[in-house]
């Protein structure tokens, strides 16, 4: 805003909402309500943290991949997760936060990340199931975000969604190979699906009735579908895929409802969700400790590179 700009605060607010209602994007230097800015910082920063922490469950398997082909794929996938984190931190910074500060908020556990990454990856089948179900659920969430009202976030999501498609397909292909293998391999896949199915459903968040912020996010064009809509879409997508693999989804209430034209399914254990997201999941402490250690161990590199750049800049100007 400049001195020559004499419009009233109400005029700015009207213009902001009109831009969103016309399905246009809000860009970084536009006027925006403080609550919109803060909601986006929370969402984008914690999305970025999720990508960064999300490298850990699968990353542990890189050195133990069953073949060079699988190893190259897994390396590329985990590198993508780092890249996704970087796209998102870059988007968050356009809202006036500092990337280093966001990292501090993560390692001090004041900002969170997706609860799903607090579950351990116990077998190589988990690499496949994480790609298929966890990244599949993420895609359901992320595709509508490509049309999010905030330009830099929407553009980051376009890049991410293109790459997530590779993640999901490599996971499914891995599972397909295992399901066509030995009985023991099929059993590994089933055991893995049994552990990841419910946490994947929880990724969409609580039922709509328990999600009071959804309405505001939808009015701001940040969110396009409710938690329950996205969860339903994910279940309907996953059922035929599970059939193709020949595995059973661990929900006795899961069945086709011809009347609704959709699947009925059971209720996730929301007390588990609350516990995991607030810090009491199986791997929360380990994930954060690992991230903190990596950050601290890298401090001297960051300082040395800075010192070298300063020295060279001085040499040039001298």
């Amino acid at each position: 805003m400049t001195a020559t700009d004499a419009r009233s605060p109400e005029a700015y607010a009207r213009e902001f909402q009109a831009t969103i209602d016309a399905d246009q994007r809000i860009e970084p230097r536009d006027w925006m309500p403080e609550a919109y800015r803060k909601t986006l910082i929370r969402q984008i920063a914690q999305h970025a943290h999720s990508e960064i922490i999300g490298m850990q469950p699968e990353g542990t398997w890189i050195t133990r991949a069953p073949s060079l082909r699988r190893k190259a794929i897994l390396l590329a996938k985990v590198q993508d997760e780092a890249g996704h984190g970087m796209y998102l931190y870059a988007a968050a910074e356009t809202l006036g936060v500092d990337r280093e500060e966001l990292t501090e908020l993560l390692v001090s556990a004041r900002q969170k990340y997706s609860s799903i990454f607090n579950y351990p990856a116990l077998s190589y089948a988990d690499v496949g199931v994480i790609g298929w179900l966890v990244d599949g659920a993420a895609i359901c969430n992320q595709v509508p975000l490509c049309r999010c009202s905030y330009g830099p976030y929407a553009r980051a999501m376009v890049r991410i969604c293109k790459e997530e498609s590779f993640h999901q397909r490599q996971g499914f292909e891995l599972l397909l190979a295992m399901c066509h293998g030995t009985a023991a391999q099929r059993e590994m896949v089933q055991e893995s699906v049994n552990r990841w199915w419910w946490p994947s459903l929880m990724m969409f968040g609580p039922a709509d009735g328990d999600s009071p912020n959804t309405q505001q996010s939808m009015e701001w064009g940040i969110k396009r579908h409710t938690n329950d809509e996205l969860r339903q879409r994910f279940v309907d997508m996953s059922v035929p895929q599970a059939e193709a693999l020949g595995i059973t989804l661990p929900d006795p209430d899961l069945r086709w409802n011809a009347e609704r034209g959709a699947h009925d399914f059971g209720e996730p254990d929301w007390s588990e969700f609350q516990a995991v997201i607030t810090g009491a999941g199986p791997a929360n402490a380990q994930r954060l400790a690992h991230r903190r250690r990596a950050h601290e161990n890298g401090a001297w590199v960051r300082e040395a590179a800075r010192a070298y750049a300063d020295k060279r800049a001085k040499a040039v100007s001298a």
Binding site: H47, G54, I116, A137, M202, F204, G205, S211, P212
Partner: peptide, 11 residues
């Protein structure tokens, strides 16, 4: 409240 924001899962 925990809503499904965060893209890669509810936060």
């Amino acid at each position: 409240e925990v809503t499904a924001e965060g893209g890669h899962g509810a936060v």
